Every structure is written in C-alpha cells, then in structure tokens.
Amino acid sequence: MSTPNIEKTLTTKETFIFKDMVGPYFNPNWHFHPDYQISLIAEGKGTRFVGDHVQSFEKGDLVVTGPNLPHLWRSDDAYFDKNSKLSTRGLVIYFDHDLFSESLLGKEEFYNINKFVENSVRGMEFYGETRNKINRLIHKINNELGFRRIIKLLEIIDILANSEEYHLLSSPGYTNVFKGDDADKMRIVYDYVMTNFKTKISLEEISEMLNMTTTSFCRYFKPRANKTFTRFVNEIRIGHSRKLLLEDNLNISQISYECGFNALSNFNRQFKAIVQMSPHEYRKLFLNIKTSIS
C-alpha cells in the first residue's frame, strides 16, 4: 500500500500538540499536513527540504512551515548506518490552522500575526536572538497545563511574528501540486540522489526505478520540485559543499570532487549561481564570522 503524503497531526479536540521526538534519524518521508508546524532541531544534522527549497541543517535549526507546505528533514547518511550510534532530537509544535480566523487576522492588533501567517506558506527559517528565545520557551511548553499551554504557544507565536530575524524559504508563488502516490515517488528520488550525489547521477537509472522514460520523469519532476532535476541535484551537491567549506580541512578542489563535480570550473559556476558568491568568498566570510565570535 502506498504511504500517504498527507500526514495527520491534530485531532478535532486539540488546538496544538507538542512532540519531543528522539530517534536514530528524522522521518525520511516527504510529507505535508493541514496544520502549522514549528520545528527546532535539538540534535542532528542533514538536508532540509521545504517546498522547492533545499538547504543543510544542523543543531539549532528553527523553521516554521504553513499548512500543506511539503517538507522533509533528511538526516545525513551516517545516521542510517546499521552500526550508527548517532541520534536525533526534534522539538515540534503543530498548531491548528483555524487558531486565527480571517476576521481576527483582519484586526489592527493582529497585523504582524497576519504577516507571519502569510509568510509561513513559503516556510520561514529563524536565526539570531529569536532562535535563542524560542529555544528557551519551547522546552517549557510541555510543563504547562490547560489554557496556560495556549498562552505559552501564543507567546512563542508573538515572538516569531514580531521578529525580523528570518529568511523565507520556498520561492514566491510556490504551490503544492502533490497527489496520490507522489510521496512514495519523491522519496525514491530523494533517497537515490542523497545516496549517489557524490558520484555520477544517472537520469536513466532513476527514471527506470519509477517505471518512467527519462522524458516523462523530467516532465513529472519539474512541477513538483519547481525546478529541473539537474538543478535539484546541483543544489544537493552545493549544500554538501557548504558544510565541507566550513570544516576547513579540505581545499576547494578536493571539495569539488567530493561533492560529485568532475570539473572545478563547473563547481565554481554552480556554487555562485546558487549561493551568490564563490566558494572562496563563502569560506572566507564564515571563517571571519567564526573568528570574530571566538
């Protein structure tokens, strides 16, 4: 039976639920649901997919996703090793999409809440002091009972809604076109790419795995990912290269080949197209930040 891509989160009796999820790796299935989700990564690292956005994540990652926005936090391959002693922990709040009615959001006092709700449909990554505040509050929410839990949730939402420390993730106008068995098919694609991006990716092989021709696969993939398959693979490779650039134990040429690029010139070109700066500039920027912090 096909795994449904619509995930059930809240019951009709719940306004929100809090989950402290500990496991060997994060849920590897591409999914969406009708509720808002606030996700804080307390332990673990990997690659995050939100709508058509792809980015690496690590401990401290804080993201809000709106109703029916497809998402996936995929742990690095090391977490799936049968001998792995690694573990993950995610602190997640799901709250009802009807918590704020349209009439309420139209009130002057709810201006920032309304903006937050509108932005959440693209996914929002929070950073800085906002992330620190939410990190402190989210650990306490499960200690509250009854309406005090709702007050704590509203406090969290208020901080997020009034923050300017965020990036929007998915592209403007991104829409969820997933249906039927798309979740299973996209899981196969993601698993294949995440397993093989360091070597040659075969369009023929992945098409065959989905019982499609290469032409039909490309036509199938693009509207669901909002990008070509080639662009998707390059984003995965560049995302991994960004991790390696920050570790500072490989030179840029070595990183290029480690991430599946056969030519340094192509790596530099793709990196600049996706990150808007060269690998050298990226490494220098973050090493300077690291030095100033320490």
Rank of each mutant, 00 (worst) to 15 (best):
L10F: 05
L10E: 03
T11K: 07
T15A: 08
K19E: 12
F32D: 07
H33D: 09
D35K: 06
G46T: 03
R48S: 12
D52G: 13
H53I: 13
H53R: 15
H53P: 09
K59F: 10
D61Y: 09
T65W: 03
G66E: 00
L69M: 08
W73H: 08
W73N: 04
D77T: 12
R89S: 00
I93E: 03
E102Y: 08
E108R: 13
F110L: 13
Y111E: 15
I113N: 04
I113P: 00
V121M: 08
G128D: 11
E129N: 11
N132K: 14
I134F: 03
N135L: 10
N142P: 01
G146R: 06
R149V: 03
I150C: 02
E155V: 07
I156D: 05
I157K: 00
L160T: 01
S163Y: 01
E164P: 00
E165Q: 07
L168M: 11
L169Q: 06
S171F: 14
S171W: 14
P172Q: 14
Y174D: 06
Y174T: 10
K185F: 03
M186F: 15
I188W: 05
Y190A: 04
Y192Q: 02
M194V: 07
K200E: 10
L203S: 06
E205M: 09
S207K: 04
L210H: 02
N211T: 14
N211W: 11
M212H: 05
M212T: 10
T214Q: 10
S216F: 12
Y220M: 08
F229Y: 08
R237D: 03
I238G: 05
L250A: 02
L250T: 05
N251I: 12
I255G: 00
S256E: 02
N262Y: 09
N262M: 08
R269E: 14
K272A: 07
Q276M: 13
M277E: 15
M277N: 11
S278D: 07
S278A: 08
H280R: 11
K284A: 03
K284W: 07
L285A: 12
S292Y: 13
S294C: 10
